[in-house]
Each structure stands twice: as structure tokens, then as C-alpha cells.
């Protein structure tokens, strides 16, 4: 697959775009012989960003490794909706152990493969933001520090969705969750430093760190493919809107993910050995309000009283990201 970003300017589906491309450059999902690592029939909600992100990521990993992968899964929506016994949607070897130990379990899988002389088989660990930034944080940092040969993918929907939308360390400021209710003088989640895991991963100086969203699935595929070209610890952080938890329309999952990037709230970039090496420029900048107003979790910022102070505060976070990752460079220069 080409590593040059392919831009689709038509508003239609990717399938249309794929038909305009040489066969080798087409999306993995447009290939009728794709692997379907996560098969249909699972029990994810309609419009689930995580199910979409996981399928694209793992199919890309399978193609990149000649289908030689083992996946380890943290407890969470992805685990629950894919494997209610006796059913399983996984068409790859898959292991779920606990909520907070997926990185360490993956380390064990990789160590066993190495000891058995099977290092051609690659290991992917995956979990939601709770498993990644909170309960499994120590295990993840340990895996990074040892530079174990594992790609860890975080599907970030910014709260504990599986248990009923409680706040996590990845919940953004002002967002309403079941444990940060929209009541009081400062409704929703508190403003704090947040827990920016891609930057924490970079601080470990691991070979590869990237962010992606389900709004640009070809970018996600390309980053997974690139990640599989490295050995050692790698981290991809994928923003995956959750209609249930965010209070958004199921049909708006892709749109909301795109607005997150186009507002600057979710910067899309790559880093190697601790340094940012590439970022995806914003094509059509929007104010954060465009992103916020599609989600019930932010509705208290608009009614009954409009909270410009909070909205401006969120805008300043987006502005800071745009400056930090240089997201507004002229697109004609970037190609």
C-alpha cells in the first residue's frame, strides 16, 4: 500500500474512491478477500467507532504480517461485544485476560514466541481508554520501557462506556459522564491536565507512536502497516466516537471524528523514537463548537445558558494543539 496520503475530494463513499485507484492502493476493506479479523455478527452498538477502528486496524495488521498475528484484548466493550460464549467474532488467535493487564499479557505472548523461535508471528494488544490510560497504565509503561515487541492500540472513546459511561483519565474537560454530571457551577468533567497518552508514550522514546481516527481509515491502515514494519514497542491511539456515551447520532460517528481533527481537538500525528515526524494538516478548519454541538455530553454548554467561557477554554486547547503539531500548514506545500 502506498504510504502517500490519498485525498478523496468527492463527498461519496470510500468505495467510489477506491475504484479510482490502482488495485494495490485500494483500501484493505475494499478487497473482497480481506481477512475479516473481527467478523460480522458481533454485538457492538450501531455506529460504534471502536468496532470499526478495530476491524480496520487488525485487518491491516494481518495484511502487513501475512496473517501472522496474535491479539491480546483488555476487558471492555470490544471484548464483551465480540466474545459472548459460545460465540466469537475473532478469526485470529485472541486472548482476553483482565482489564488492566493486556500490555503485560502481550509481553508474555511475544516472549513465548521468541523463546520458541516464532518471532515471525507478531503481537497486538488492544484496549479502550480506561484500560490504557487508567487501570493498565503501569503495565503499558512497563511494556514501553522494556521495548517489548508489541503494537498496542488504544481505541479511545473518552470514558468507561462498557460500564455505563463513567469518567476516565481520557475524558475531556467539560464532558458530561455518569460520574461527572452536568450539574453545579462547573458542569461536566473538570479542567485539568488530562492524560495525554500519545505524549507519554513518546516520552518512553519507543520506536513508533501515532494517532488516528475512524474518520480517516486509510490513514489508520497506513499507520498500522507502518507500525508492523518496526520491532519493539509501538503505540497507536485511535479516536473512536461512541454514540451511546457521547449522545450522538449513530450516523454521525465518522463526521464527529472528522470534526475532532478539523477543529484541532484531536491532533493526528506520528512520532518516531520520541520525536514528532509527521502531522496531518487540517484541511478545513472548524471551531470546536461545530464538534461540541453534535454531542449531548456537551449540551450543557449551550442550554439553558450558553457557556462561552467553557467553549472558549476548549477552543484554546484546540488552538494549542494546532500550534504544537503545526496543523495549519498550507496544504499545497504538504503534498
Amino acid at each position: 500500500m502506498s504510504s502517500t496520503p490519498i485525498k478523496f475530494y468527492q463527498v461519496g463513499s470510500f468505495a467510489i474512491g477506491n475504484r479510482l485507484l490502482p488495485a494495490d492502493d485500494r483500501s484493505i476493506q475494499s478487497d473482497p478477500s480481506r481477512t475479516n479479523a473481527l467478523n460480522s455478527g458481533h454485538r457492538a452498538c450501531q455506529g460504534c467507532g471502536e468496532a470499526l477502528g478495530a476491524r480496520y486496524a487488525l485487518d491491516a495488521a494481518m495484511r502487513a504480517t501475512n496473517e501472522q498475528i496474535i491479539a491480546v484484548n483488555a476487558t471492555g466493550c470490544l471484548e464483551v461485544f465480540s466474545t459472548p460464549y459460545p460465540e466469537s467474532s475473532w478469526r485470529i488467535p485472541w486472548l482476553h485476560s483482565l482489564f488492566g493487564n493486556a500490555p503485560a499479557v502481550a509481553t508474555g505472548v511475544a516472549a513465548a514466541l521468541k523463546a520458541q523461535g516464532k518471532s515471525d508471528i507478531r503481537v497486538i494488544a488492544q484496549g479502550g481508554d480506561g484500560a490504557t490510560v487508567d487501570i493498565g497504565f503501569g503495565a503499558l509503561s512497563g511494556m514501553f520501557e522494556r521495548n517489548d515487541d508489541v503494537l498496542y492500540i488504544c481505541y479511545d472513546n473518552e470514558a468507561y462506556m462498557n460500564t455505563g459511561v463513567q469518567r476516565s483519565g481520557a475524558t475531556p474537560p467539560a464532558a458530561r459522564t455518569a460520574t461527572t454530571q452536568a450539574v453545579g457551577e462547573n458542569p461536566g468533567n473538570v479542567f485539568g491536565q488530562g492524560k495525554n497518552l500519545p505524549r507519554i508514550a513518546m516520552a518512553h522514546e519507543i520506536p513508533y507512536v501515532a494517532t488516528a481516527t475512524v474518520a480517516d481509515l486509510r490513514d489508520l491502515e497506513a499507520k498500522v502497516t507502518k507500525a508492523m514494519s518496526f520491532r519493539g514497542a509501538r503505540y497507536i491511539h485511535v479516536l473512536v466516537p461512541c454514540p451511546l456515551g457521547w449522545g450522538s447520532q449513530s450516523c454521525d460517528t465518522i463526521k464527529i471524528a472528522r470534526l475532532a481533527t478539523q477543529s484541532g481537538l484531536f491532533p493526528v500525528f506520528e512520532a518516531e523514537n520520541g520525536e514528532v515526524v509527521a502531522s496531518t494538516p487540517i484541511r478545513k478548519r472548524v471551531d470546536v463548537e461545530e464538534y461540541l454541538k453534535l454531542q449531548v455530553r456537551y449540551s450543557h454548554l449551550f442550554a439553558p445558558t450558553r457557556r462561552d467561557d467553557v467553549i472558549n477554554h476548549l477552543q484554546s486547547i484546540a488552538d494549542k494543539n494546532i500550534a504544537r503539531y503545526n496543523l495549519l500548514i498550507d496544504e499545497s506545500e504538504s503534498i
Binding site: 488492566g100 493487564n101 499479557v105 509481553t107 513465548a112 521468541k114 520458541q116 503495565a139 509503561s141
Partner: peptide
């Protein structure tokens, strides 16, 4: 020989590494 010795960051990780390794046939 043919043995991986992993220094982990906690006992919780030690048993978790063991789980992954054992499930992979080691």
C-alpha cells in the same frame, strides 16, 4: 537456553506475562 527472562514492573505484570506466555505454549 531458549528462555526469555522478563523483568517486569509489578507482580501483577509478572503473573500477566506468565498468562500470555503460557497461553502461547511456553
Amino acid at each position: 537456553r531458549n528462555c526469555e527472562f522478563i523483568n517486569v514492573e509489578s507482580e501483577f505484570a509478572a503473573m500477566s506475562v506468565a498468562i500470555g506466555a503460557s497461553a502461547t505454549g511456553a
